[in-house]
Nucleic acid binder design. Structure first.
Lengths: 134, 134
DNA sequence: TTAATTGCAAACGGTTTGCCACGTT
DNA sequence: AACGTGGCAAACCGTTTGCAATTAA
């Protein structure tokens, strides 16, 4: 795993990730690509996601709901985790750099980053709820 | 699972959790209690952690490092996730309520909470590193 | 030609669960 | 007596991995 060769599968996984804002799971990527790549295997999806993460071309999101999600947007940004359906939505709040300053004031210079996740309802669950169709 | 009965095992798991700030894993709890409760099983530890979480007597921390950690301190507070050894440390930064206000300004009233984790070195890894004993 | 990549299926590892005996109320 | 709980072991499920065949460079 030192010098990577290109592969159809990896290219396609990356382009799919860049074309969506849905922060997909490995299973969703697999199922989405399966029709156009009938031989694709789930192991290949996982292997390539790992390589792409290692190359810094995607972010892994450990949402806590059991399975990981993957984000083709590698810029630091925050997320909303839907407490109803598990979806992940971007929150376009500027990165709050002062949080790390405050933490450093307490713990010293050993902070290297932070993650901030909001909990609540994604757009679609919120609209369903307000329409009373539970 | 409607009306709980007390049990030796659950009481002990809870008291152990309250006596430590180490945010233990289920496996650590199991191994720590095993000497004094030789018949204890890991399944029982998991079952009781789940019940205690349901009762709101502990917090589950999805650190993202594979296994969950459990926190007997149920007050909202922040954590430092050690990027070297996986340990979890408390960060006594007051809860930043304005973060949710800012998020609500962007997304509307569908935010119900947030979690903020810092990444960096725990106290013990930081001191090892500064002493050059890598 | 050489070494990374793939598909497949088996293995992994943290967590959950079915079963039946036991303990609590 | 009624029913939650415990121990045990098997099942679960997202993810990883060993292997032989394929493919990129």
């Amino acid at each position: 795993m030192t010098r990577f060769k290109r592969s159809r599968q990896r290219d396609r996984i990356m382009s799919l990730l860049c074309s969506t804002k849905s922060h997909p799971t490995a299973a969703w990527i697999y199922e989405t690509l399966k029709p156009e790549m009938p031989d694709l295997s789930l192991g290949t999806v996982y292997r390539n996601l790992k390589i792409l993460a290692f190359q810094g071309k995607l972010q892994v999101l450990h949402s806590g709901s059991g399975f990981d999600r993957f984000d083709g947007d590698t810029r630091p940004h925050y997320h909303l985790l839907c407490t109803r359906c598990g979806a992940v939505e971007d929150v376009d709040l500027p990165v709050q750099t002062e949080l790390e300053q405050k933490a450093k004031a307490l713990l010293g210079q050993r902070i290297s980053g932070h993650r901030l996740d909001f909990f609540g309802l994604c757009a679609s669950c919120a609209s369903e709820q307000s329409h009373g169709k539970n």
